[in-house]
Simulated scan of single mutants.
Amino acid sequence: MLIVHRFAAAIAMACIATFFSATVLVEIFGSVESISTVKRLIVWPGLLILVPSIAFTGASGFALAKGRNGVLVSRKRKRMPFIGMNGILVLIPCAVLLNLWASAGVLDTRFYVVQAIELIAGAVNLTLMGLNMRDGFRIRGRFHTCI
């Protein structure tokens, strides 16, 4: 179960980091066509990879934490629902809308407001997932807290 958890978490983080960096880079250096291509790839096949990896990360994490207590486990448990809801309620709808608008060539103020929301939500999820990873390493004894 631990291997599934680690693999799924790594895939989820890699997806979000790739979506985030691709979005920023294509906005700086790309054309309208390349923006549309990135938005399309984020939705398909990107979400097909991301959504199950987050689901497997959460499910395997809860299974691994079953019967365990402690501050670190509690923190991870509290973050995971927020990560999932942020993905379902913010990131997925933003990705779908941005793909629709970009494919129609509509890169207006509305597009960039939604994209800003998507980037902020993605950064929040990356941060929370990074904190969960750090705490997971601490639970396993890989990192020690220095005081």
Rank of each mutant, 00 (worst) to 15 (best):
Thr145Ile: 14
Ile139Lys: 04
Thr127Trp: 13
Phe82Trp: 11
Val96Met: 09
Ile120Ala: 14
Ile28Gln: 10
Leu128Val: 04
Arg77Tyr: 04
Gly84Leu: 09
Phe19Gln: 00
Leu98Gly: 00
Gly46Ile: 04
Met13Ser: 05
Ser60Trp: 04
Gly130Arg: 04
Gly130Ala: 11
Ala12His: 03
Ala59Cys: 12
Ile35Tyr: 04
Met1Ile: 07
Leu100Asn: 13
Cys94Lys: 00
Thr145Asp: 14
Met133Cys: 09
Val32Trp: 03
Gly46Trp: 02
Leu41Pro: 00
Ile28Tyr: 11
Ile92Tyr: 07
Thr109His: 12
Leu126Asn: 10
Val106Phe: 13
Val114Asp: 01
Glu33Phe: 08
Ile147Asn: 13
Ala8Thr: 03
Arg79Pro: 06
Phe143Tyr: 13
Leu97Ile: 14
Thr23Gly: 07
Ser103Gly: 13
Gly58Thr: 09
Leu91Lys: 00
Arg68Ile: 00
Gly30Ile: 10
Ala9Asp: 06
Arg77Val: 07
Trp101His: 08
Cys15Phe: 10
Leu107His: 05
Ala17Asn: 06
Ser60Tyr: 07
Ile120Arg: 02
Gly67Met: 09
Met133Trp: 14
Lys78Ile: 09
Ile42Asn: 01
Gly58Glu: 05
Ala104Met: 13
Leu50Met: 07
Phe7Asn: 07
Gly84Tyr: 05
Gly105Phe: 14
Asn86Cys: 08
Ser53Ile: 08
